[in-house]
Amino acid sequence: MNLNATLIAQLVVFFILGWFTMKYVWPPLMKALDERAAKIAEGLAAADKAKTDLALAEKRAVEELRKAREEAAAMRSNAEQQAAKLIEEARVEASQIINRAQRAAEEEARASVQRVLQELREEVARLALVGAEQILRREIDAKAHAELIQRLKEELK
């Protein structure tokens, strides 16, 4: 084992290599590492935020769904009520129409009866007149006896 200038040379090389690493190797590597760490932290934070956002959106969707369902149910019961009301109204109107028609028909019938009765009376009066005429033949003047016939007609009413 001998000591010699190799020792000095090694010492100098040692410092040069250390200096080089300090100057050109360490800073960019540390910078990249720090930047990546920051990036990863950012990414994780973003993922967390997305998760909470998603949960929020899900909650909102459920809420909306519930509201829509309630609205639909309300609409349906509304429509049912409306329909029931319409049916009720129709029923009332129909019964009114029927009543009215009934009344009209009764009136009509009554009027016809009156008319028929009137005709019958006149016929009877004419027949009676004809009969009396035949019985009395010229004895009876239609004009002179008009009052009598009229009274007869009145009595037959």
Partner: peptide, 26 residues
């Protein structure tokens, strides 16, 4: 090398490999 310490001598092999590997390292 005969003397124990002689700073006029340089180990060429050590110097060559150490420096070369140092350069490889950096």
């Amino acid at each position: 090398q005969e003397s124990l310490v002689d700073f006029s001598v340089l180990h060429l092999d050590t110097f060559f490999f150490a420096t070369g590997l140092g350069m490889l390292t950096v």
